[in-house]
């Protein structure tokens, strides 16, 4: 997928999703320095301020953490359920990454006081995963820390390494009965891709977005 295809598909997706109550927006990349020297503009798709109630920490787990000498002084405030629990805020960005020539899903989680959520907390909160053993040599399907390609902020991203093979198979399974124009095909790809990868990290899309999709042949 080329950047231009990504942008048009993202714009079309945004229009549909916002018609169904979400609040996606297209963020053009206009850092003034680049504008002043005539550099290309490249933007990304963003869903900001998705709130999620903090995880319940059961008393056993809490006690274990307190008993653990190594962790007792570094308990992340965001995992301690306070008297009036405040929600965490997530941001989801869909950015075209030149290295892989496809859209990549980036997410960032913060507690109400602005602290970044830990990687492991995000795994449990968004992915329902308790997997703590991640070798640096294996490809994780869980989000891992990465610098946002446009803003430079600390985000997590879902590695797109096998996106192409996976999405090719899905697109084949959902082939429409008649030849569709490229823009429609790109939009269909985008919706399917985001419904799969977004689901994996706690991003819910309106069901109505898929009502117009053809059934598997």
């Amino acid at each position: 997928m080329k950047y231009e295809e990504f942008q048009s598909a993202a714009m079309a997706f945004m229009a549909e999703a916002n018609d169904h109550g979400q609040e996606w927006k297209w963020v053009p990349n206009h850092p003034r320095p680049l504008q002043n020297v005539g550099a290309d503009d490249r933007g990304y798709l963003a869903l900001e301020e998705v709130y999620r109630e903090p995880l319940e920490i059961d008393s056993t787990e809490n006690r274990n953490e307190l008993d653990d000498e190594d962790s007792c002084t570094f308990i992340d405030p965001s995992v301690i359920k306070s008297e009036t629990a405040q929600p965490n805020m997530y941001r989801y960005h869909v950015v075209y990454v030149e290295a892989y020539q496809c859209p990549v899903l980036f997410l960032q989680g913060k507690s109400i006081d602005g602290r970044l959520l830990d990687t492991e907390y995000i795994w449990r909160d968004c992915c329902g995963s308790m997997n703590h053993e991640q070798s640096w040599l294996t490809d994780s399907c869980l989000p891992t820390p990465e610098e946002h390609p446009v803003t430079g902020e600390p985000f997590h991203f879902v590695h797109p390494c096998r996106s192409k093979d996976f999405m090719d198979a899905i697109m084949q399974a959902f082939l429409p009965s008649v030849q569709e124009p490229c823009t429609q095909s790109n939009l269909r790809y985008f919706k399917l891709w985001l419904s799969v990868y977004g689901q994996a990290v706690g991003l819910r899309l309106p069901l109505a977005l898929h009502s117009s999709n053809p059934h598997p042949t």
């Binding site: 990687t119 640096w136 820390p145 990465e146 430079g152 600390p154």
Partner: peptide, 22 residues
């Protein structure tokens, strides 16, 4: 605004990710 650093494994993992991008 820095990526979280949690010891050597953070750097290794990031290095491998960057290597794969290149």
């Amino acid at each position: 605004g820095l990526l979280p650093y949690e010891g050597d494994v953070s750097l290794r993992r990031h290095f491998r990710q960057t290597l794969k991008q290149a």
